[in-house]
Design a protein around this nucleic acid. Sequence first.
DNA 1: CCCCGGCATCAAGGAACCGTCAAGGTCAGG
DNA 2: CCTGACCTTGACGGTTCCTTGATGCCGGGG
Lengths: 230, 230
Amino acid sequence: MTAGGNRVLVVDDEPGLARALAITLRASGWDVTTAADGTSALAAAAEHLPDVVLLDLGLPDMSGLDVLAALRGWTRVPVVVLSARQHGEDKVEALDAGADDYVTKPFAMNELLARLRAAVRRSVVPSDGEAAVVEAGALVVELARRRVLRDGVEVRLTPTEWSMLEVLVRNRGKVVPRRQLLQEVWGPSYGDETNYLRVYSAQLRRKLEDDPAAPRHIITAPGMGYVFEP
Amino acid sequence: MTAGGNRVLVVDDEPGLARALAITLRASGWDVTTAADGTSALAAAAEHLPDVVLLDLGLPDMSGLDVLAALRGWTRVPVVVLSARQHGEDKVEALDAGADDYVTKPFAMNELLARLRAAVRRSVVPSDGEAAVVEAGALVVELARRRVLRDGVEVRLTPTEWSMLEVLVRNRGKVVPRRQLLQEVWGPSYGDETNYLRVYSAQLRRKLEDDPAAPRHIITAPGMGYVFEP
DNA sequence: CCCCGGCATCAAGGAACCGTCAAGGTCAGG
DNA sequence: CCTGACCTTGACGGTTCCTTGATGCCGGGG
C-alpha cells in the first residue's frame, strides 16, 4: 500500500471512548488525531487533512450534522458517523448530508475498522477513467469503456469478438470451459457449436497477438476451453 | 433528466424480497435490473453497467463473495451487500473483499435507500459532476445551460437532438449501448428502434461535425452503440 | 503405416447494420 | 386556416458481420 491513507481524525466528546478508539486505531497502524468538540474538530481537519473522519453525532458545542456540513463545504474526505441513536431518521439524514457510513453504538471494533478501511479504499482512487483496465504485455483491455488497445492504438472489434474477449478477460488466468463461453457469448441455447469458438479465437488472435500462430494471451486448453493469460 | 446514476442491479434469490425491492426502488426513481443467481448477476452487470449493485450474500449457485470478487476483477461499481448474518466476521470479510457497505436483514427500507444514494454519490467523479462545460476541439457543450457552441457560435438543437447529445457527453469516452441510449432519450419502453439513433446521429453530425461523413466526436461503435470523443 | 478426432484457417453467401433521403404526421403559433 | 418546426416511419444502397462448410495440419491409437 502507498504511504498515504492512514491519518484518521476521531471526533468524540466522551474521553473514555475516544481514548479506547485511539489506542485500537494506533495499534492497527493509523495515525490518530482526536477532537472533543465540533470547533476543534473543524480546526483539526483543516490542519491535519485526515484521510478519514470518525464523527460522533453527540457533541457539546454544535450538532454533528453541522460539523458534517462544514466539512463538506470544502472537502470530500470520507466521514464515518458514530451514533447512539439506533433507529429513526438519523441515519438517513446523516447519509444524505454527505456521510459515507453510519455505525450505531455499541459496535464491534473489527467491523468499525473494516468500515474505515472500506471508506479510505474508495477515496484513494477516485474511479477516474483509468479504472477497470487489464494490462497484458502490449495489450490494454478497458472493460468499462469497451475497447482494447494494442501498443497504445485502439483495435476495432466486432460485437461478438468483444463479447468473447470480455468473458475471457473477466476470467483471466482461469480456463473458461467451451460450454460456458458459448452460452455467455451466444446465449443459453448454445453449447455445442465449437466451430464458433475456433473462428473467433482465430480472429481475436489475428487482431491482438503479435504472432497469431504462437499466441501468448489467448491460449487454447485442448479438450477444455480457452484461457486469457495476462 | 435522469441521465446519470440511476441504474441498480438487485441480486437476490428470494423472489418475494427481490420483487419488493424492485418495486420500492422503481418508485424511488431507480432503473432496476434483477438477477437471481451469481452467474446471471455477472452477466447482467456486464451488459447493463449498473451504477450500483445490491448483492445478497446467500445465492444458490455461488458464494456472494465470489460474485463480489468477480465484479472487482473489472469494475469499481459500488456494491452494497445484503445479508441475514447479523454478527460475526462476515461483515469484515465482505467489506475487505471490496464491498462498499453492508446491511443486515431485516433492514429499514429508507435506510437502505439512503445507503444506496450515499454509495452512488461517492462514486461520481467530481470533475464529471461539476463539469458543466465540456470542450472537444471546436465544440463547447454547456450542459447546465443546455446549449452547444461550434467555433464560438451557438448551434440550435431540437429537444431530442440535445437530449441525445447530453447522454453521449455525460458518458464521454465510453460507448453508450444502443438500448441505453434509446431508453434515456425516448423512455423506458423503447429499445429496438435503432432507426431513431441513425437519424439523430446523422443530424447531430451534420450540425456539429466539420466533415459529417468522417465524424471526429460522434463516433459509431458498430453493433454496440455510439460514443462521444472529446 | 494409415486413420481419425480436435484444432486452425479460409472463403462465400446471406443476414444485419449503418448512413442517407424523403414522405407523412403532429402540434403550436400566427 | 396556414405555416413552420419537429418527430416518426419507411425505403434503398453500401458495407460489415455472422454463420457455415470445406480444407489442411498435427498427434495419438489401431
